[in-house]
């Protein structure tokens, strides 16, 4: 474990040094995120021109949820897409060999080797948006709620990570599908709104089958006091389950990998 961390730390140092050469990208990234957030808020405002609640949530509650959505987008764009997201190409070209010969756990290394550091600002901006929305609601979360939120958010990040691992494991079977990450993007679109806003069948899908509900609805609910803090423990349990499932899928998938020469 310590070895993995030391190795990753070395990679991250090079990574950061590289990125610091392109500081204009920082400005572009922040502007892009702000534009993206503005679009989401305008969309919401458009819906609320014609209604006063969506699935029982009012405007600012959903803005809290959008903040959570943006925070997780930051995790995805900064860590997952540059890391595990580039797996498909490597499976096809056989470059994965270079990872497998390293004396570290391949899943851990593949997942966290590369960072898009500028996108970490998405996390900051997302949390700021959630905080602002809470302020507008005139609600200060209790310490208990904050702890529950922290736990639920961490669980959400684990769920998102596990879904990526599951999808990328498919790459070992469907080598020619280079854009498999698009499947995630399509699913994650559903996490922009509280699950209660969707018709019954879709809600079932998002809670139980593809656990997207646990990524935004639950943390946002914990923060606004919509759900009892204890639910964060259930979220942690769900995250642990999905993580184990993903770990298993990865193991099975890796056994299929034949390498560049095979």
């Amino acid at each position: 474990m310590r070895q993995v961390l030391r190795l990753l730390a070395a990679f991250w140092r090079i990574n950061v040094a590289e990125e610091l050469q392109y500081r204009a990208n920082f400005v572009a990234s922040v502007l892009g995120t702000l534009f993206y957030m503005a679009t989401a808020l305008l969309t919401l405002a458009l819906f609320f021109r014609h209604t006063s609640q969506l699935g029982g949530w009012d405007y600012w509650e959903i803005v809290v949820l959008l903040g959570v959505f943006n925070t997780l987008t930051g995790v995805i764009e900064a860590v997952l897409r540059p890391g595990i997201g580039s797996l498909v190409g490597e499976v096809r070209s056989g470059e994965l060999d270079l990872v497998l010969v390293k004396p570290v756990d391949p899943q851990g290394f593949v997942s966290f080797r590369r960072l898009d550091i500028w996108r970490f600002t998405d996390i900051v901006l997302g949390l700021a948006l959630a905080g602002y929305a809470l302020h507008r609601m005139g609600r200060a979360p209790s310490a208990e709620q904050l702890v529950a939120f922290g736990l639920a958010l961490a669980a959400a990040a684990v769920v998102v990570y596990a879904i990526w691992v599951l999808l990328m494991s498919l790459a070992f079977w469907f080598v020619s599908v280079e854009n498999i990450a698009v499947l995630f993007d399509a699913l994650f679109e559903g996490a922009r709104y509280p699950v209660s806003a969707y018709p019954g069948a879709l809600r079932f899908l998002f809670v139980y089958l593809i656990p997207i509900a646990w990524t935004t609805t639950v943390p946002a609910s914990a923060l606004t006091g919509r759900l009892r803090p204890a639910l964060a423990l259930v979220a942690a349990l769900v995250a642990a389950l999905v993580f184990l499932l993903a770990r298993l899928a990865w193991r099975v998938a890796l056994r299929r990998y034949a390498g560049a020469s095979g």
């Binding site: 819906f47 969506l54 699935g55 599908v177 854009n179 698009v182 499947l183 806003a197 879709l202």
Partner: peptide
């Protein structure tokens, strides 16, 4: 997959307006 991604946005918009 691109097609699926392309129809997600209108499908979600439909879900919300439906509600």
């Amino acid at each position: 997959l691109w097609l699926l991604w392309g129809v997600t946005e209108p499908a979600i918009a439909l879900g919300i307006w439906w509600a």
